[in-house]
Design a protein around this nucleic acid. Sequence first.
DNA 1: ATTTAGAGTGCAAATTTATACATTATTTGC
DNA 2: GCAAATAATGTATAAATTTGCACTCTAAAT
Lengths: 150, 150
Amino acid sequence: MNRATRLALIEKLVRENVIGSQEELLRMMEGTGMKCTQATLSRDLRQIGISRGFDGSGGYRYFLPSGREEAADSLPGSDTAAITGITWARGLLLIKTLPGFAPAVAIRIDRAGRYEIAGTVAGDDTILLIPRDNISNEAVEECLSTIFQS
Amino acid sequence: MNRATRLALIEKLVRENVIGSQEELLRMMEGTGMKCTQATLSRDLRQIGISRGFDGSGGYRYFLPSGREEAADSLPGSDTAAITGITWARGLLLIKTLPGFAPAVAIRIDRAGRYEIAGTVAGDDTILLIPRDNISNEAVEECLSTIFQS
DNA sequence: ATTTAGAGTGCAAATTTATACATTATTTGC
DNA sequence: GCAAATAATGTATAAATTTGCACTCTAAAT
């Protein structure tokens, strides 16, 4: 049970799981029989370079130093996975995707033929979705989750 | 002194300085006359996506979401010359370029990662730029002149 | 003009993370 | 093998960050 083994385990756990706090990671480690205190964990994370960011849906999550994530992440299995973020601005919905994926995702939205969505325009990695008049943001988002659920 | 202005200032300060804690950033903001509490700052940082990492020499530092750090080092300034006109319409900015140059110019704008700009969609010779809500036309134009100066 | 709904904020408390210090292990040089 | 030096860890505590709640402000609706 040495330090190097522990560091490797920590990196593995962070790579393969969504972890929101050091306490949570600690409990996960205990599950594998490897244990230490939160103080040591804090030092280990700094050593490895793991830092905390946002998980994209209101929570927190630890991340490996950039470049160490899973290569597979950058090859989305489905169009849905290509979406990297959405923002409302000026009554329009901006959908950000991985480079090159915007047209594919936009086509899928268009084909759904939802009334709430007046139309879309796709660039390379950004889609502009124009809702119809008097349609709420929530209604549009609900549309999208219907379209992309599965 | 509204929220959007504060968020833009925060992004600017984080982009241009090495900041290690929210208190430190707070003091920096006070220096510009813009002030709020640390609690609000915590919420703002989440909103913008700024998170804390390591500075490479034992300390901490806040970082912009990846891709937003240093704008446009390697991008030729010549794209600027491709812009043939800009017009505001419906709260959106239409940027006209020479044929074929719209994607290149749009990429440059995107890479700058300015908070004020929610996103862009590029055709062949036209870019649609969507500002965030509550951002003035002037602020967006100032952004652009910053992005394209050099 | 008044009401209502929602966003934004400060305050204080809770939670989470980092560190000073003491202690224990590990390595190094003899 | 032994002492000295160095690294690693735990404990307790400090520092930093996040959040629940109440209040304010703004803008839309009646």
